[in-house]
């Protein structure tokens, strides 16, 4: 088990490094610089703009800039923002908290809905529930996240829910956007194990209701669902970037968008690394959980 974790950590670190190199190279291929804004101001001469670029270190070679970025990362700054003139970490932390809040709420909402509806509709008795679940899945899958978020904002505006620091609308948009990917899988997973002998045995023992669902049925179905959890954590972050921008939630989304627009490469790279890091971590954690939940996987690794 220890070796398994160590190997996954090594792989994760390697992936992050590759992402950083590729990301850095890609960002430097994009034409333009933050200081172009000043080049459109007739009150500034090109010499001054060039001096600003020089001061920011933008004119150095790519390996030099990558080296500086690495040094800054190991110094615990996570890079240096050309636009804000502050260490990237300072920009990221408060926004990361905001994004984590939103992503947690969205994740909880989508998984709760998927689990409740999934269990209900996978049940042989829940014929209507199956219809509701099918309908909900198709409708939500058909609406692009962008439209969903905009529509919810409109509803929220009339309902008086669009207030600063109000999580309701962005969390709803994010959570609802996550449901169509989860619900069919949860249902299929639960159906698959519904006829398993150990469940029948539990049933025969007289175990019923939520105890049956939670402790036996869901547990039996956990194996195919756990990787899904890892995946949904990763996708939740990338969808939250869009939702944040639309709903004006002050998380990583607006910062990422503006950093790409202003060519603030260290900031953009940091967001990409956080997203990849989260995905890697989530996958690793689910692998470990899976191993813990299923003795067969434990044995084989």
């Amino acid at each position: 088990m220890k070796r398994f974790v160590a190997r996954r950590l090594m792989q994760g670190a390697l992936t992050l490094w590759v992402v950083s190199v590729v990301g850095f190279a890609l960002m430097s291929l994009v034409p333009g610089s933050y200081f172009d804004e000043a080049r459109l101001d007739p009150r500034l001469s090109p010499q001054t703009v060039e001096a600003m670029r020089n001061r920011s270190g933008e004119l150095r070679t790519l390996p030099q800039r990558y080296g500086e970025w690495l040094v800054s990362c190991f110094a615990g700054e996570g890079g240096y923002s050309v636009v804000y003139q502050v260490p990237v970490l300072h920009l990221m932390l408060p926004r990361l908290v905001k994004t984590a809040q939103l992503a947690t709420a969205g994740l909880a909402l989508s998984w709760l809905t998927a689990l409740v509806l999934g269990a209900w509709s996978a049940n042989r008795a829940g014929k209507h529930a199956a219809a509701v679940a099918d309908w909900l899945t198709s409708v939500l899958a058909a609406i692009p996240e962008l439209v969903l978020a905009c529509g919810l904002m409109l509803i929220g505006l009339y309902a008086g829910l669009v207030r600063e620091d109000n999580l309701t609308i962005p969390a709803l948009a994010l959570g609802m956007g996550g449901i169509p990917a989860l619900l069919p899988q949860v249902r299929a997973g639960l159906r698959q194990v519904a006829d398993a002998p150990y469940l029948e045995l539990a049933w025969a023992h007289g175990i019923r209701g939520w105890r049956f669902t939670l402790l036996f049925w869901l547990r039996a179905a956990a194996n195919p669902l756990l990787p899904l959890l890892g995946l949904s954590v990763g996708t939740m972050l990338s969808s939250s970037l869009v939702v944040e921008i639309i709903c004006g939630w002050p998380g990583l989304g607006p910062l990422f968008l503006s950093s790409v627009e202003t060519r603030d490469s260290h900031v953009a790279l940091a967001v990409v690394l956080i997203a990849s890091g989260l995905l890697i971590t989530a996958n690793t954690v689910t692998d470990i959980l899976q191993a813990a939940a299923d003795p067969r996987i434990r044995e084989s690794s």
Binding site: M153, L157, G160, V162, R163, E164, I245, I246, C247, G248, P250, P254
Partner: peptide, 18 residues
């Protein structure tokens, strides 16, 4: 001074009285 991100958000928050 509140950063609203987009102009649409600005208008929404203005209409909401914020």
């Amino acid at each position: 001074l509140r950063a609203t991100g987009t102009e649409e958000n600005q208008v929404i928050r203005f209409l909401a009285g914020e």
